[in-house]
Design a protein around this nucleic acid. Structure first.
Lengths: 332, 332
DNA sequence: CTGAAAGCGCTTACAG
DNA sequence: CTGAAAGCGCTTACAG
């Protein structure tokens, strides 16, 4: 910037004003500065700028998801990026891998880079550590799951409602022995979906069979193994509700290998690529992850712009998509 | 930091040294500083630090891919993150949407935030604009496709070799009329895969039928429509080579809707979720996108660490995975 | 080993 | 409208 000022024959202040598009600069001076910028290949240093500027904004936000390569979360990330892009805001992204410690480290690292806000898919069960960041002026919005021990905006899918819908759909089809395959029950979404599963049973006066409820299917083949065990064991279910995209994929794989895909009902939470092509087609309760991301970003930028109203909880409904696997009648 | 110094009763210099883990600070002073840091909830400002520090490093790198929500690119991003994480380096990510202008803007925006390096999936056909960033000390590595008009490291899949393998596999199965469904031919990967398709034909003395070669299938239903047109037209192909994940998915969908999935051979470039469950299973030439990302990151950090050897081109082979769709004999 | 001072690249009252 | 000066939060020679 110093060089630009020298070449243009103006002061640093003037260069700064031109770079920041202050309209009060005389046209000919501005033109000279812009020429110098071009000639020198000057690059504005946003970090240095943020250091001194009144609002302290760095025009960047941090995103913490469970795993950037999970299609669900990468779609959330994409939704955030779309809104951020309109404002010229950049996104930093990191994967917590569902580890509280890693989540904390990422939040801290983002904070240390001066992000204006943080959009977080919670991994830990205490987000008190974010209070400090917020006190330092960092906006915080949670997405997919609410934060804990902190009052902040969040954008959620109606997990219980979606799961209830899925399971009631199976019940309406005549199923009475419906298995539940879930992630760690400590995860908010997993808990909500389990609740929906139970509510659906309760509404129809059907008992939940504890042996059919399987949790903590977190690793690559867990749900595959659980599906096999359930189906090959005694008193197998006539239908399965898989409560998450990766679990659905594993279960479908197991069903196909056992040749039971036309015999056992299946509804999954989250849509899955090729879900319409597999036979039978996959009946799912679909979320809209891009929309989840967009809404979270809108909320975040409202806070960055100074909105200090009470915190909001946005709930987005899930949509039942019938494709065949959920419309199979029980064998008996 | 000033407050920390005051509370600990030491100078700013000492606080800075402790924060940067300089071992030459007396233990009791260091302890006092750390206590003060804890008590005050002090957060280190990495941007301000980078401004003054000798190496000028911000411990962040920028990633530009076509679309962060495409499973292929999100896996690349994940691979980069894994390597970056080991070094405590953060990743900024953005989608170019295959638009040169957008790619340039992202690179500039990342540069303005002082990233130490850039990993780019090229969208434009002239990366001369990066020369300026590089002169300013920003390392550059390309991934998936090479950059143009700039001498830089890149990590590529063997596109021509993989495509050749795929098409020769179909030829070995008896196919002579093999369609090619591709992205914009200006994209390096698409061009390489087309070349492999042509080479496979040439090696076996088979003529390529221009009517079976379809390009620029960039939008959501393009490949679906193209598949229908080819199959419902006169002189349809007996097999299809789809040169990219999204195109494969569209083509499979069209095949299934036409009920031709067991009649028409198919090999796709890129693996696809549920590709083993669909019937017939999808034969693909699989890339390893996570590895692509990892290798690119390793190369980038070597440059950041000062490696100024000649630029490298790393080529990773693609792997044929037989699952059924590529082993279908031609109908005639 | 520690501290006072200069300065990284920038913005912003404050005069003029 | 423009410029000189102070200062954002930090690091780093330089003395001591």
């Amino acid at each position: 910037m110093k060089q630009v000022a020298a070449l243009a024959g103006v002061s640093l202040s003037t260069v700064s004003r031109v770079v920041n598009e202050d309209p009060k600069v005389r046209a000919d001076l501005a033109a000279r500065v812009r020429d110098a910028v071009g000639a020198l290949g000057y690059r504005h240093n946003v970090s240095a700028s943020a250091l001194r500027r009144a609002d302290g904004l760095s025009a960047s936000v941090g995103i913490i998801v469970e795993d950037v390569s999970n299609p669900f979360f990468s779609a959330v990330q994409r939704g955030i990026e779309e809104i951020a892009r309109e404002r010229g805001v950049l996104t930093l992204a990191g994967s917590s891998d569902e580890q509280p410690e890693r989540e904390r480290q990422l939040a801290e690292a983002f904070g240390a880079r001066g992000v204006d806000g943080l959009i977080i898919v919670p991994a830990s069960n205490d987000h008190g550590f974010l209070l400090r960041d917020r006190a330092a002026g960092v906006a915080v919005v949670f997405v997919d799951r609410p934060g804990r021990f902190i009052d902040a905006d969040c954008v959620l899918t109606d997990n219980a409602g979606g799961a209830r819908q899925a399971v009631e759909h199976l019940i309406a089809g005549g199923h009475r022995r419906i298995a539940f395959l879930g992630d760690r029950p400590t995860i908010h979404t997993a808990a909500g979906r389990l609740r929906g599963y139970e509510e659906a049973h309760a509404r129809h006066g059907i008992a939940v069979h504890p042996a059919l409820v399987r949790h903590t299917l977190t690793h690559s083949m867990d749900a595959y193994d659980a599906t096999r065990e359930l189906l090959l064991g005694e008193a197998p279910p006539t239908a399965i509700f898989t409560s998450q995209n990766l679990i659905t994929i594993d279960a479908v794989r197991a069903l196909h290998e056992l040749g039971l895909q036309h015999a056992i009902g299946l509804v999954g939470f989250d849509d899955v690529v090729l879900g319409d092509v597999v036979e039978p087609g996959l009946t799912v309760v679909a979320q809209d992850p891009v929309e989840l991301g967009r809404r979270a970003a809108v909320l975040l930028f409202a806070r960055i712009d100074g909105d200090d109203g009470p915190s909001q909880e946005v709930v987005i409904p899930a949509r039942l998509v019938r494709r065949g696997s959920g419309e199979l009648a029980p064998a008996s």
